[in-house]
Design a protein around this nucleic acid. Structure first.
Length: 595
RNA sequence: GGUCCCGUAGCUCAGCUGGAUAGAGCAUCUGCCUUCUAAGCAGACGGUCAUAGGUUCGAAUCCUAUCGGGAUCACCA
């Protein structure tokens, strides 16, 4: 497709050269703001020195030149130093015709580039909560966006399945579980294990308290409480491969995975490859040798290994403890290298909260220093915390918003509203269930993804997520409405007729606006991919849908006397629905045919 | 204390590679269903873009300082 913008740029450059002998390489054109007439605006202030004239006269001259020399400039107007250019309707119609012919409109060319996207990466000692929800939705959506931009994606997660935290749940279950299982209790596996994690914490606190009453310092009490000693002992046994402990560990982790799978299924997300920390936690050690040999790392007299990043304005960072065990950073280095060995990847994206900005900064520098080619394309998809009105979520204070509960609430709300509005008449039970899921999850996903990932966001559990206005359901509704139109069009045999751009020539304002939005779509996808920002897609789709609704409300579709207008509007609607469907798909949101 | 992020309408958010009169949604108030789905449309109300300087023809956007909020700075993960 011809790129209108770059073509126009070239013409303006020519105009400046011919009028004022001004030689420039490129310049910025912007979209004309809504309240003014025109499509594209040139700000002429920067060229006043060359023109030696006032802003209005300069704009006028450039405008006249362009109107005369460029066929697709239909008109122009000047307001102060702003030259607003009007692009001919025929150009828009031509563009629209090209869009209709484009298969998979919006998708970028294949890039032959494979990126691994890591997201979710939970601990196995407690259920997923609202914080994970943002992580998971972002990771999934960014993956879909990158795919649409032409990259190959491998979705992955690293499951933090080992360590003292899981031993705590195991120990508590052993002591107080009475052999309970998810099956015997009907409790979802991750919830069951999470309950025992809480139980451990309660018992631990009691022990600390009684030790303090016996006269111990709190710090000592924390170290010496029998229950924590038992948990440490269990971890040691696990590391030695004690059969009984490992069997229990496998059993309880299995429950958790079953629980997580259900949650992932409701969310509609997936992974191609899973990494487990129990497999990777020793991996970084051999890299240490490599780093020492290359002189990237240094060894202290006590045997600990460090990297000195003071030259980069950072700290000295430890990579191997004096007892020879590895730390978080070492594991992450090892895991990254393992991944590059497992797959032919060109880069990686880590979806991790912004409290780990520093960690990833350091990690990426280290990997670069070690000289891996793929290390040039590592990104930390850093996102802000989700705040509650009460402040930060704290599991110990019971202020976490559980992922499953949250999703169920939205689905229930979707059901309530749908029934209230009487939208479900004639639907089968299955269709209804699907619809409630789609709309409920659509509301939740859109609510989270429309916000710039980098920013922290507010969620108030007391107020339900909106289903009106700038929301997922609003967009879904518009799609359903178009589908309804198309069903009628099909019945009337209108869909078989091709739209011919040359038969319909005078566009209404709302029609032109809508085409402009559709034209933008591929670029929006590219920008969203570059910025790793689903919010770009969400906000674009909202604007598109608003433009469609204005069109829908203002113009008749079937009842227009002009048959080519009817045909045009039906195709315009169909194309809008298609873009909406694809854009929402990039957010992991499905759209209904009826609602 | 060092480093990093943030502060836009009552609330939740766009806009931030400098450009026109700072935009949406929610909430409040007006209209519009006998014509294609009113989860919609049209409109009203609501702003010293935290504050103070600076750069510029032009600053919500860039720079500096101050205030306020948050994160991070472990031989934890």
């Amino acid at each position: 497709m011809i790129d209108l913008n770059s073509q126009l740029q070239a013409e303006v450059i020519k105009a400046l050269k011919s009028l004022y002998l001004l030689e420039i390489k490129d310049l910025e054109l912007q979209q004309t703001r809504k309240d003014f007439v025109g499509d594209v605006t040139l700000v002429v202030f920067p060229y006043l020195k060359a023109s030696r004239k006032g802003p209005e006269q300069t704009s006028q001259e450039i405008g006249e030149y362009l109107k005369e020399h460029v066929s697709f400039i239909a008109d122009f107007n000047v307001i102060k130093g702003f030259l607003n250019l009007v692009i001919a309707d025929t150009v828009w119609l031509e563009k629209f015709g090209e869009i209709l012919k484009t298969e998979n409109y919006g998708k970028g060319e294949k890039k032959n580039e494979t990126i691994m996207v890591e997201y979710s990466s939970p601990n196995t000692n407690k259920p997923l909560h609202l914080g994970h929800v943002r992580n998971i939705l972002l990771g999934y959506s960014v993956s879909e966006i990158l795919k649409a931009a032409g990259k190959d994606i491998i979705k992955t997660q690293i499951i933090n399945d080992r360590g003292i935290h899981i031993c705590k749940s195991m120990l508590a279950w052993q002591r107080w579980g009475n052999g309970e299982t998810p099956d015997s209790t009907g409790v979802k596996g991750d919830k069951l294990v999470g309950n025992y994690y809480v139980k451990f914490d309660q018992e631990y606190k009691k022990e600390i308290e009684s030790l303090v009453n016996e006269g111990l310092e709190e710090k000592e009490a924390k170290e010496q409480a029998p229950i924590i000693l038992a948990a440490r002992e269990m971890l040691k046994k696990w590391e030695q491969g004690d059969e009984e402990v490992v069997a229990l560990w496998k059993k309880m982790n299995g429950w958790v995975y079953d629980g997580f799978d259900k949650t992932y299924k409701t969310m509609g997300v997936d992974f191609q490859k899973l990494y487990y920390e129990s497999d990777t936690y020793l991996l970084g050690k051999k890299v240490v040798e490599e780093g020492l040999a290359k002189g990237v790392f240094e060894k202290d007299p006590d045997g600990s290994v460090w990297i000195d990043l003071t030259a980069e304005g950072l700290d000295r960072k430890i990579l191997l403890r004096s007892d020879g065990t590895s730390v978080y950073m070492t594991q992450d280095i090892g895991t990254a290298i393992q991944r590059a060995e497992d797959f032919a990847i060109n880069g990686m994206i880590y979806t991790v909260g912004n409290e780990q900005d520093y960690h990833f900064k350091v990690l990426f520098i280290i990997l670069k220093k070690l000289g891996y080619a793929w290390a040039e394309h590592l990104y930390h998809l850093s996102y802000g915390m989700v705040d509650l009105p009460t402040g930060k979520m704290k599991s110990r204070e019971g202020t976490v918003v559980d992922a499953d509960d949250l999703m169920q609430e939205q689905i229930d709300t979707a059901k309530e509203i749908s029934e209230e509005l009487g939208k479900t008449e004639g639907m089968t039970e299955e269709e209804k269930t699907n619809l409630y899921n789609m709309v409920g999850m659509g509301a939740l996903k859109y609510f989270i993804l429309k916000v710039d990932p980098k920013k922290r966001m507010m969620f108030n559990p007391a107020e339900s997520i909106d289903f009106q206005g700038n929301t997922g359901p609003f967009i879904q509704y518009t799609h359903a409405r178009i589908k309804s139109l198309l069903r009628r069009a099909e019945k009337d045999g209108l869909l078989e007729k091709d739209f011919n751009a040359s038969t319909y020539t005078s566009l209404a304002g709302v029609e032109r606006e809508l085409i402009k939005f559709l034209v933008q779509f591929p670029e929006v996808v590219q920008v969203a991919a570059e910025e790793l920002s689903p919010a770009q897609i969400a906000n674009y789709t909202y604007d598109l849908v608003k433009a469609y609704n204005a069109f829908y409300q203002q113009l008749p579709i079937f009842t227009d006397e002009n048959e080519s207008a009817v045909l045009f509007r039906i195709h315009l609607s169909a194309q809008t629905a298609e873009v909406v469907k694809m854009a929402m798909g990039l957010l992991g949101i499905t759209v209904p045919k009826r609602m």
